[in-house]
């Protein structure tokens, strides 16, 4: 990854152009041709640096609700439980963290009832007590990693 790649990534993390020839625009802003911009973005994707390029959605607006959950799972069971949680429809994030509640995940569904029922199933199956931390107010959502 050279300086031009970094410039491109900083630019398109912020906004991928909504124009007919987006790579021309990216090229203009980074001092290269559209063709080269396209080639570089393709390579960054192939190298696994870019995960995807596309719309970043606001789930609430689309009629979905999500809950952050924290749960304590014994070390001996954590991989199994974590895999099961990751496989659930609507789970977008799932991390093992330090602390007493050592597994944290986000589950998104159309209704809170569907979320509750998925969580109740998990609790029953593994003898867990899942704590729910629903959101009350959003102050910031913006993932941007300056390179």
């Amino acid at each position: 990854m050279d300086e031009i790649d970094k410039k491109i990534l900083n630019l398109i993390q912020e906004e991928f152009p909504l124009s007919e020839r987006p790579f021309e625009d990216i090229g203009k802003k980074t001092g290269i041709s559209g063709r080269e911009a396209l080639k570089r973005v393709k390579e960054l994707k192939e190298k696994g640096i870019i995960r995807r390029i596309g719309p970043i959605l606001e789930r609430k607006k689309l009629g979905y609700t999500s809950v952050l959950c924290g749960v304590h799972v014994d070390d001996s069971a954590i991989v199994e439980v974590a895999r099961e949680i990751s496989a659930l429809a609507g789970v977008t994030h799932n991390y093992e963290r330090e602390g007493e509640l050592n597994l944290w995940f986000t589950i998104t569904k159309k209704t809170i009832g569907e979320i509750d029922s998925a969580l109740a199933d998990l609790e029953r199956a593994h003898g867990l007590r899942i704590y729910r931390f629903p959101e009350k107010r959003t102050f910031k959502i913006k993932t941007y990693f300056p390179l």
Binding site: L9, Q13, L18, I50, I53, P55, I56, K61, F145
Partner: peptide
């Protein structure tokens, strides 16, 4: 959709561990 707020933005998402 952006103006409406359903699309927050159109952008690239990185594998941040790799950067």
């Amino acid at each position: 959709l952006k103006a409406d707020g359903a699309v927050r933005r159109v952008a690239s998402v990185l594998y941040y561990r790799r950067v």
